[in-house]
Design a binder for these strands. Structure first.
Lengths: 176, 176
DNA sequence: CGCCGTAATTAACCGAGGTTCATTTGTCGC
DNA sequence: GCGACAAATGAACCTCGGTTAATTACGGCG
């Protein structure tokens, strides 16, 4: 566990979540960083046309916060909701920033975290730009084994960026 | 200009580029950070099927490097090439990291940079997941005014993720 | 067991982008 | 102005995901 995760766990406040509970919702201001201790969350947003899109599934160990809210104080661009009964830890980002002002080790842990985050987003961009929905589904299965049992097909469809019907067709094609 | 950019300019080595010249190519190891002083670069990769995809256009002031190569020392996942005659500054990332070990101000500048980078990628993910190619083209035009005069339509098509033919159709639809 | 609500599947139709190939336009160098 | 090459457009056909709506499968629960 990195210094960053340690800080969150040490100074954070625990929050219990039932399926459907939100940590924050799109449009709200929330400058906390969360760590998922157990359970499963999803980060998603609602588009203008009402469709839901899932940015990521967050199993145990994940760290998350709305980057725009943390950095610029803008309203969150997405919502954070529990899929399963979960346990999370919350810590104001200002605490992290303050600590980073004087704690070089923490600052570098933060840099490492943000770099990893950037890397993950780079790969996600590649997948979205280059790969078909079918390939993206295959990757999701490979990267999060057991996800099929934990989330609905509608959510997986919202993650790979197609309708539930399309995902159903994809699964049929793949099983043949 | 942030402390980060300052560091690059101060200690970096200048590199002149003609259109078509590469700073690094996909698959190579290159752990330098670059800043574009003038001109225009593109970051792109070649997919297994031979198609080219453009991650971003990099005008004056941009800072770039292959995150995976910087952080993990993996081979670069994309290539960096000049579209116009350009002037860039290169600095080994290890220099940045070392400086960040002792310079808390730089570390925080790095954090700010990485956060901004993460935010940009978040928005790009949103665009790819939610918006039609037509919308993405409109956004490109809005965000980089003058880009039409500076890059070929094929490159813009590679950026928004469609074929040149499709972009041609989109432009026809939009002009009506 | 049967009822009901939700999730998942299937079908039919449509439209947009991909693919391939031909044609036109544009831009140089001479 | 002309030839040559690249860039952009256009046309014909195909595939796949979106849309709408109907149907089936699956769980509780009375």
């Amino acid at each position: 566990m990195s210094r960053f995760q340690e800080l969150v766990v040490e100074h954070g406040r625990e929050i219990e979540l039932q399926p459907g509970d939100h940590l924050f919702a799109q449009g709200e201001h929330d400058s906390r960083v969360f760590m998922v201790k157990s359970g499963l969350l999803k980060a998603y947003y609602i588009r203008v046309d009402g469709k839901e899109h899932i940015k990521s599934f967050l199993p145990e160990g994940s760290i998350i916060g709305s980057m725009v809210s943390l950095v610029d104080g803008d309203p969150c661009s997405f919502s954070l909701q529990a899929i399963e009964a979960s346990l999370a830890v919350a810590l104001p980002y200002s605490t992290v920033q303050q600590a980073a002002q004087s704690d070089i080790e923490l600052a570098n842990a933060l840099i490492a975290f943000l770099s990893t985050y950037g890397k993950r987003k780079e790969r996600r961009e590649y997948e979205l730009l280059s790969l078909s929905p079918e390939k993206r589904y295959a990757i999701l299965l490979a990267e999060m084994p057991g996800i099929v049992e934990r989330v609905s097909q509608a959510d997986m469809a919202a993650y790979i960026g197609v309708t539930p019907q399309a995902l159903s067709r994809i699964r049929r094609r793949m099983s043949r």
